[in-house]
Computed example of a mutant assay.
Amino acid sequence: MSTLYLFAGAAEPVFDIARVIEEAQADGWDVCLGLTPTAARWLAGSLEGLAVLTGHPVRWDYAFPGEGEVWPEASAILVAPATFHTVNQWALGIVDEFVVGVVAEGIGKGVPMVAVPCLNAAYARHPQFERSVETLRGAGVFVLRGEGESGMGDAARFPWRVALDAVRELVAVG
């Protein structure tokens, strides 16, 4: 079974993460869930249940030195919803958060990755955002752009199925 690291930031679609995990599992993925620190706070009451659902601990922080790895190696990574903060940190190589550190390293390891930005229109117009998207694309990350990007208020329209299909296609091609 292939392992999908599902990394989610603090945007409204994160509240649908259990359903997305179930969809990914139905597609044949062994899912490991990683969250940004704010997303972990938002889902604090659900973390134990999400760990049971995935069969792996939910991670949002780096392990201490000497602690063993608790997840299998990633076959692919989906970063969704990817916030303005996460996209820019990733592109700039600022790895003070676990999720960003793993995806930054994933570029160097050649792990197939899909990112689905979810931010408001004002953030999308910030000049650094477009530079960051281009940096990630230049590094081989498939950045899925569209309605989910400005859909922070409408989580039901977030393109989860499209994102999961894009990951599957990347792994099949790779």
Rank of each mutant, 00 (worst) to 15 (best):
V111C: 07
E73I: 15
I94F: 09
L144W: 01
G101H: 06
V70I: 06
Q25N: 02
L164Q: 07
V70A: 06
I77W: 09
G138R: 06
D27G: 04
P159W: 02
R125M: 02
T54W: 13
E73M: 14
F64R: 14
I94N: 08
S132A: 11
F98V: 08
G34C: 09
H85R: 05
G28R: 11
V100Y: 02
P13W: 01
G148I: 08
G9F: 06
P65S: 12
V100H: 04
D165W: 08
V143Q: 03
P159T: 00
L92G: 07
I21F: 01
P81Q: 01
Q128H: 03
W71G: 12
V114R: 05
G153M: 15
V173R: 15
N120G: 08
V87F: 00
P127A: 05
G146R: 03
E23G: 06
A11H: 03
A166M: 02
D96N: 09
E23C: 06
V133G: 03
A172L: 08
T36K: 00
E48D: 15
Y5H: 08
A155H: 12
F142T: 11
E169S: 12
R137W: 10
A121I: 01
T54V: 12
L164N: 07
G148T: 08
V58R: 10
P57A: 11
D30W: 08
G106V: 15
V116H: 10
P81L: 00
L78F: 01
E130C: 04
P57M: 12
I17P: 04
G28I: 11
R59Y: 10
T135W: 13
V116A: 14
L33N: 03
P13M: 02
R137Y: 10
M1F: 14
A155L: 14
I17N: 09
L92K: 13
D27L: 09
V103L: 01
C32R: 10
D16T: 00
L144H: 02
L53E: 05
F7D: 13
A172T: 11
I77C: 10
E147Q: 10
D27K: 04
S46K: 05
D96E: 07
L6F: 14
W42Y: 06
R131A: 12
R125N: 02
L35K: 07
G146Q: 04
H126E: 06
E134Y: 15
F15E: 00
V141H: 03
E48Y: 11
L6D: 12
V79N: 00
E169C: 13
E105G: 04
I107K: 14
F98Q: 15
A121C: 03
L4G: 04
H126P: 03
V14W: 01
A51W: 07
D30F: 09
A40P: 00
D165Y: 07
V114M: 07
R145Q: 08
L78I: 01
V52W: 13
A172P: 05
A91T: 02
H126S: 07
